[in-house]
């Protein structure tokens, strides 16, 4: 690729339908999204979420085009989130992208959503070779790039951190995602209630915290105290395993990516850990922490530059597509 081109990235793995226009230099011209909100107390319903995406897609695409002030003929490539995610949701994004690719006669690029989180976080924070903590509703993983792939150096053995927070949030009657409200409540308490702390090597397990926190709520403990204790315990575990990976890999940069990167308490803990070790902490900007089109657009550009594209007839979505399966040709 010699000259600059534009990429439209379409994100549709779970609750968010997002569209972004980026140029091949890494400038984000527009990034718009709509998030499906389930009723209070319940989680994402795949059918309802995909319906939300179908209904909002046309307007969001137009809005992204208008905000970037470009016309359809300016678009060079179309990137879509091909997995991992919820099947019906993935298929909406893929269908929209295939239609655009055929209509505009432009290359179609499948993108791994998790790689998207990491690469956009690297771009926006300027970090080069980080130990990455990917924390969201779908992932809780520690990654570092090594011999051609984003390798997994630690992960959850059961629930993700986002699931843990959302499930306790829903149990307390809030709607998902419940991270913001839980953090707000946690700030009002300093009363630590004991919860199971489970670190296994570089891995964590959250299922014990979920059971115990539910019991604490059943026994009429204040939601503020439970939120505080849950957050302190779970984030301490995440900070510890990140430090373990950092010490093992002997690296000096930490990156937080994914939706839970928006948590200020998690940032505070990791920052304290990094300062004591003399490492630097980099965080994806709040705006690009959650699922968004830009993560797909940017990774689409990196992929296309290294020869990845797919014909519409061969294109696919995969609900299970682990990030350490993806060959990364753009990093050394």
């Amino acid at each position: 690729m010699n000259s600059e081109y534009l990429c439209m990235g379409i994100e549709s793995t779970a609750h968010t339908f997002g569209v972004s226009i980026m140029d091949s230099e890494g400038n984000i011209l527009s990034d718009v999204k709509s998030v499906y909100k389930p009723p209070a107390g319940s989680g994402i319903h795949p059918r309802e979420a995909s319906r939300h995406h179908t209904v909002t897609a046309p307007d969001l695409i137009n809005e992204a085009m208008e905000k970037a002030s470009i016309s359809y003929s300016d678009i060079g490539i179309i990137a879509y989130s091909a997995g991992p995610g919820i099947g019906p949701c993935l298929r909406v994004g893929a269908t929209v992208s295939r239609a655009l690719s055929l209509r505009l006669k432009k290359p179609l690029i499948p993108v791994n959503h998790a790689i998207g989180h990491i690469e956009l976080a690297c771009l926006t924070s300027g970090v080069k070779d980080p130990v990455n903590l990917l924390v969201s509703g779908g992932h809780t993983m520690i990654n570092s790039f090594n011999t051609g792939k984003w390798r997994v150096f630690g992960e959850t053995l059961d629930l993700t951190i986002g699931q843990l927070i959302d499930q306790i949030g829903r149990y307390a009657g809030f709607s998902s995602p419940a991270g913001a409200i839980m953090e707000e409540l946690a700030r009002k308490s300093k009363n630590y209630l004991m919860l199971p702390y489970s670190v296994k090597g570089n891995d964590v397990s959250f299922s014990g915290i979920l059971t115990s926190a539910k019991k604490l709520l059943d026994n009429d403990n204040k939601i503020e105290d439970v939120s505080y204790s849950l957050q302190e315990t779970a984030y301490s575990m995440l900070t510890e395993v990140t430090e373990r990976a950092l010490a093992f890999l002997e690296k000096e940069e930490v990156l937080i990516s994914g939706g839970v990167a928006a948590s200020s308490r998690l940032k505070e803990m990791l920052d304290s850990m990094c300062k004591e070790r003399g490492a630097t902490l980099n965080v994806v900007p709040k705006k690009y922490a959650g699922d968004c089109g830009a993560q797909i657009a940017w990774t689409g550009i990196l992929s296309y530059n290294t020869g990845i594209e797919i014909s519409v007839s061969d294109s696919w979505v995969k609900q299970s597509w682990r990030l350490d399966r993806v060959k990364i040709k753009w990093r050394k």
Binding site: N146, T147, R151, F153, K200, N202, L249
Partner: peptide
């Protein structure tokens, strides 16, 4: 099993060759 899974993961990620 968890003990072995950890070692396997580290060998695969850090010593892939």
């Amino acid at each position: 099993g968890v003990d072995i899974k950890l070692l396997k993961g580290i060998l695969n990620s850090a010593h892939n060759d």
